[in-house]
Nucleic acid binder design. Structure first.
Lengths: 139, 139
DNA sequence: TGCGTTTTTGACAATCATTGTCGTTGTCGC
DNA sequence: GCGACAACGACAATGATTGTCAAAAACGCA
């Protein structure tokens, strides 16, 4: 955690530092793995933090836009959010039990950069998700 | 959560050949680019084919499960479907104009196989989407 | 070829995550 | 301390996708 008050986007819109925003950030900082907006909302409630569901959605959106958290969109479900560890990485997700393994992929990064450069694309980002059956569930 | 995940590719399940299924397949075969289920439904109606929206959804799902079409899930929107060209490939999508470039990635395939094997995962599939700004829109 | 079984269809209702609304509340600059 | 204005949040609205189930169509078989 760093980035405190005074974060201001170029457009001149001030991002205010509120209890709710801090609560969401703090929760994400302490939590492992992916969780849906609704789950995070419930977790905040359990902690005694009173934060509206709408606010949770908006805060997560803002954090995702700022690149401070990961968003995963698994087939057939809600969006899942997770604090973003430093550096770029991807996820290997078990279809059956949902277990997630974090994998770094310098190979992929390099490849993606080369491909996009070839086509003249700029301001590039990419998402890569790998789904499979983990050894435990395979049995 | 259980999966009736279909490995029923053998002769057990008869996939019946209906007018509606043919219509959807034919439309996809003639159409370039990605389209939503609703768009495809409208296109069928314009052609004079009478196919229910529910059927379109189910047919697309079936085709996607069978690996005959691509599914893309862009942020903030509907699922987009497209006929799948032979071989595995990925997409480079322009954020501004939506233009799509198809790219093959043997490097990525190899990498993905290696990583999943390392973790013992089986029955693996992956999705990779690259978003950026194309040269035209960058200006 | 005709018949019965089984799948598929499709209009409509239901679901449910996400977004919009808008009066109220709290923050922050001054 | 004060006022402007962003953020909040309860609720309603949206809208894509899925479930339902009677009717229709396809296919296997005699």
């Amino acid at each position: 955690m760093n980035e405190r008050s005074g974060v201001m986007s170029d457009s001149g819109t001030a991002v205010r530092n509120t209890r709710q925003r801090s609560a969401v950030s703090a929760l994400l900082a302490e939590t492992e793995g992916f969780h849906s907006a609704q789950e995070l909302h419930a977790m905040l409630r359990d902690r005694g933090e009173r934060v509206g569901l709408t606010t949770v959605y908006r805060t997560l959106q803002g954090l995702a836009d700022a690149g401070e958290i990961d968003v995963m969109r698994p087939p057939g479900g809600e969006h899942l959010y997770r604090r973003c560890s430093e550096g770029h990485h991807h996820h290997l997700v078990c279809r059956a039990c949902g277990r997630t393994v974090e994998v770094a992929g310098p190979t992929v990064e390099t490849w993606a950069d080369r491909v996009t450069a070839q086509h003249g694309f700029t301001d590039v980002s990419h998402t890569l998700e790998i789904f499979g059956t983990c050894p435990t569930c395979a049995r």
